[in-house]
Design a protein around this nucleic acid. Structure first.
Lengths: 222, 222
DNA sequence: TCAATAGTGTCTTTCAGACACTATGGT
DNA sequence: ACCATAGTGTCTGAAAGACACTATTGA
């Protein structure tokens, strides 16, 4: 069998970086700096560098740091988009990831980075709209059964903030009592002893929590 | 930005083809016909042919037909495995799929095809053990919430056969009454009117059913 | 003491699991 | 009539949702 008689495709990674912007779940976009679609807003992505990236995840780390200025955030493989026509240059394979970052982690980072409300972003180049759609479905679906949405919060958060994040991500109202009961039964959080307060516009101080595990999946909805 | 200064990786698809063999969930393996690992049993797979495959799914169709002799069966993208070292030849991207086929569909097809019990297959080349592990987790996990396991049965089946498949895939015993109740409430099946009987070693004839939708996902377990 | 959020108690409904029951028809 | 499997009815306990209640403290 003579294989390798076929041209090798382009291999890239694309990242749907999600954060909270003005209370809305939003997608990070970056103006492209090369052809095709130069200067159009597109997903964060880039070629796999076969000399320096050992795995596709390495490429994600490298690109998140170089293009978005963030490190150490949660990401997960989403789906791979592969076809002859998704990229005008050549047969192309894009291994897509989604990532979550707390708004607080983005300060003096990439200035070019734009956040656009996930449900209302304009046209995007390539098949990036499809990729975003898949990411939102995944985050909303799996979100209800995992601690994924908590990755939009800083390491320490209040119960109310956690509930608010789940409501935003899932797009439904949750009952306070049931929410606390379930979070407690699942044993996801540890209370931060001693410190409280976290003044906002509440009078009464609130307990602070952090996740026990970086990421948990369960079989009940929150 | 000068891109494309990097070598392009190899791009292949690998397929975890599952069926029922002697009552056990089993994986189809094929002896490799080329180096590396020539003659070792491995997953069904092959290069993406950039000239004839328009998408990765096209490659799956082509390879399933050519190497396993099956057409028109259910498959779904699983995960992509990409690293510098998973293939000794070069930096390699494998877009992995899992597929389900009823035992009855495999007759005069590929003679070389071997079925090995999923929980007890020996060592496999490349990272194929990892791929199989991911496929089993997916099928067992998502299986409970979808009609995926029904794709191991012929188009027409009895309620008992359906229950048995779910039990085999999920590895648990299910209550007959609850199972029928839930399947009914979800409205997954349509009864085949008129015909019954389907003699086995039962005395009483049984109703036959088929799936309404090729594939459904729900949020209750069966 | 009041405003505003933190946090709890409890009722009702829904659903899963267990299990016993009835139904059918070939032998 | 018997028996193996088909198919149903009903009880119990767990968990979800709704909603009202109490608690705390800064202003």
């Amino acid at each position: 069998m003579i294989e390798e008689a076929y041209g090798r495709p382009i291999v890239t990674v694309d990242i749907v970086l999600l954060s909270l912007n003005e209370g809305e779940l939003s997608v990070a976009l970056l103006p492209r700096t090369s052809e095709p679609y130069m200067r159009s807003l597109a997903l964060i992505g880039g070629y796999v560098h076969t000399d320096e990236d050992h795995t596709a995840e390495d490429a994600v780390h490298r690109i998140l740091k170089a293009k978005a200025g963030v490190e150490g955030i949660f990401f997960e493989q989403l789906q791979t988009f592969a076809s002859a026509t998704r990229d005008p240059r050549d047969w192309s394979v894009s291994v897509a990831y989604f990532a979550l970052v707390p708004r607080e982690k983005l300060h003096g980072t990439a200035d070019e980075l734009m956040f656009r409300a996930a449900d209302n972003l304009g046209a995007l180049p390539f098949d990036h709209e499809l990729i975003v759609k898949a990411a939102l479905e995944r985050v909303r679906g799996k979100g209800a059964y995992s601690t994924i949405p908590a990755r939009l919060l800083p390491d320490e958060f209040t119960m109310s903030e956690l509930q608010a994040i789940y409501q935003t991500v899932m797009g439904v109202r949750l009952d306070q009592s049931a929410f606390r009961r379930k979070v407690g039964e699942l044993g996801l959080l540890e209370e931060i002893q001693g410190r409280k307060r976290q003044t906002k516009d509440a009078r009464r101080p609130t307990a602070l929590y952090r996740l026990k595990e970086p990421m948990s999946v369960f079989d009940r909805r929150l």
